[in-house]
């Protein structure tokens, strides 16, 4: 991945020189065992409880003292059920989306933070899908609390959570078009139709200078 510019400025106006910088982003690779801490225990438990472990898990990342399991969308439901019932991760505290436009066929990531009160441990699941086919099975039947979090992730990123009981927008208006947290969505918004007139986004308005 590479990224150019410092402040995201294009065209004129940038006299600082930062606009010419190009820097490379690093994609953190898979971590090899031992993972350290309780992570090996979690991985062992999951491997024992779930025979298809090696097929379902794309990669395991341990970074900054946190464990992330990258899981294939098609296997998410099974893994989640085992994590809840057998590994005692009773809570899914939230779902978070991240948009990586440069990652081919894996532009949209859904990130689930799991908490086990019994074990007093946390792990993270990450599921990657493409922009063209952004389908992930909903985990509402496993953890009812993911209901609103999945709606928010749909609202902001356009990830479709299959079999969600009511996947509608939650923060943006119901008839909104576009997914605001995607990287290609402008910060200052899009043009708005109001009482028959169209109000352009601030950057598209008439300039008086």
């Amino acid at each position: 991945m590479s990224k150019s510019g410092m402040f995201g400025s294009q065209g004129s106006g940038d006299t600082s020189g930062f606009g010419g910088l190009v820097k490379t982003q690093t994609v953190i690779g898979s971590t090899e065992r031992p993972y350290g801490g309780y992570f090996d225990q979690v991985a062992d438990d999951l491997e024992r409880a779930y025979p298809l472990f090696s097929d379902a898990i794309e990669k395991v990342v341990v970074d900054r003292g946190e464990l992330t399991l990258f899981i294939k969308p098609s296997r998410l439901l099974e893994v989640a059920k085992i994590l809840r019932d057998q590994l005692k991760f009773e809570m899914c505290v939230g779902v978070n989306g991240v948009h990586y436009p440069e990652e081919v066929n894996r532009q949209l990531h859904a990130i689930y933070s799991l908490l086990s009160i019994t074990r007093n441990q946390r792990i993270r699941l990450e599921v990657c899908v493409s922009e063209t086919d952004p389908h992930i099975p909903s985990l509402v039947e496993i953890w009812a609390g993911t209901n609103w979090h999945e709606r928010e992730t749909y609202d902001m990123f356009g990830i479709i959570f299959d079999n969600h009981p009511g996947l509608t927008r939650i923060l943006m208006p119901d008839d909104w078009s576009g997914f605001p947290q995607r990287k290609d969505y402008p910060l200052d918004g899009i043009e708005i139709e109001y009482k028959g007139a169209t109000v352009p986004a601030p950057s598209q308005r008439r300039s008086y200078s």
Binding site: M1, K3, M6, K23, Q25, T26, V93, G94, N96, G97, V98, H99, S113, A144, G145, N147, W148, H149, E152, Q181
Partner: peptide, 20 residues
């Protein structure tokens, strides 16, 4: 992403979750 600005900031707010 290694830059001077956050790539993504997400708050798991307890009110949001608890209101469910």
């Amino acid at each position: 992403d290694g830059g001077t600005r956050p790539y993504r900031v997400h708050f798991r707010d307890p009110s949001f979750n608890n209101l469910q």
